[in-house]
């Protein structure tokens, strides 16, 4: 049995975009990404907005077509090649891989009771034999998400943000998935309930043996919940490492800039964000060489012509020509 639940290699998702009658351009939303997500891990995905995090998550859920590369899923019971998947197997994969919506307000239909909202995936996918079994499964997952019978009868508008997010979680988990993509799932919540929802996700991961891909812009949340983190920039994976290693010693200049920009709680803290000058490149018109060279303070000639490959050292991967040299500079 393999240790990884998801293994992608050279995965790309390209969108054709029409700008004019005949000109069809390719927008490389995800470009040749290789990742491995271990079973039972809480895998964080961070990076520039527009860098392709949501698209990568959706590709792994097979919610958007994979343009090139391979992606494999293996949970010990079944193994799928996501590129090939269709028919009955695709239907089965939909029960095993789920998305938790970002916005607990928009995601829940106001006209349905909480019970019906949670039951819907079971009914749509025809996973239960009848109402009694559906009710049973709904009650079970609702209880795990700390929603009681009284809650199930009500409509979502009567709930607070944290409760609504728990309803979304219950809905995503009711089909018994193994792999869950949580895209900005706590972004809309204030910190006091955010902590509660994160604790719940961790607990469910433990109890139900889930593997999470956790997409977030909140780096302190990622640092506290994920065991492994990958950083994306302009469709590429530029750095990935165990969480602690990444936060203690980031290697990529973009990751360093990202960490320096985390707003401090101290209003007098002058440690200003490292400003990134230079053009933010467009995904339809990508720079040659390193994708970060237009904004990188350390770019040299080679960066402008040759794209750095992902290099691994001590289980920490980075794609930068100068990372070692720059780390030594910091150490000295």
């Amino acid at each position: 049995m393999s240790r990884s639940l998801i293994q992608a290699s050279g995965l790309s998702v390209h969108f054709p975009i029409g700008s004019g009658l005949f000109v069809k351009q390719l927008l490389k939303a995800v470009d040749s990404v290789s990742i491995e997500i271990e079973k039972g891990s809480f895998f964080g995905l961070v990076g520039e907005s527009g860098s392709g995090k949501t698209t990568l998550g959706r590709a792994l859920l097979k919610a958007v077509p994979i343009s090139a590369g391979t992606a494999h899923y293996d949970d010990g019971e079944v193994a799928y090649d996501l590129q090939e998947l269709d028919g009955a197997e695709l239907k089965d994969y939909r029960t095993r891989a789920q998305l938790i919506f970002q916005d607990p307000y928009a995601a829940l239909s106001p006209r349905m009771t909480v019970r019906d909202i949670i039951a819907e995936p079971l009914e749509v996918m025809g996973l239960t034999k009848g109402r009694a079994e559906t009710d049973e499964r709904v009650r079970e997952i609702a209880a795990r998400c700390r929603l009681n019978l009284e809650h199930l009868r009500r409509f979502p508008h009567a709930f607070s943000g944290g409760q609504r997010q728990r309803i979304s979680i219950a809905r995503a988990l009711v089909s018994g998935p193994k792999f869950v993509v949580a895209d900005e799932s706590v972004a809309a919540l204030d910190v006091s309930i955010q902590a509660d929802v994160l604790n719940l996700l961790k607990q469910l991961q433990d109890e139900l043996g889930l593997t999470f891909m956790f997409i977030s812009h909140d780096l302190s949340v990622v640092a506290h919940t994920c065991d492994h983190v990958a950083v994306m920039y302009l469709g590429r994976l530029i750095e990935t490492a165990p969480t602690r290693m990444l936060f203690e010693a980031p290697r990529h200049p973009y990751t360093k800039a990202l960490f320096s920009a985390i707003p401090s709680l101290d209003p007098d803290d002058d440690r200003t964000a490292q400003k990134l000058a230079g053009e933010i490149p467009s995904p339809t018109d990508q720079p040659p060489g390193c994708k970060f060279q237009t904004r990188c303070p350390h770019a040299i000639d080679i960066c402008k012509s040759q794209e750095p490959a992902l290099e691994t050292e001590d289980g920490h991967d980075v794609a930068c020509h100068r990372w070692k040299e720059l780390m030594e500079l910091v150490a000295a």
Binding site: D196, L198, A223, T243
Partner: peptide
Amino acid sequence: LIAALPKLEDLDAPLTPV
């Protein structure tokens, strides 16, 4: 609210919701 913030200085500290 302030106690519930995840702190970067201490990654092992549990998250404490209200």
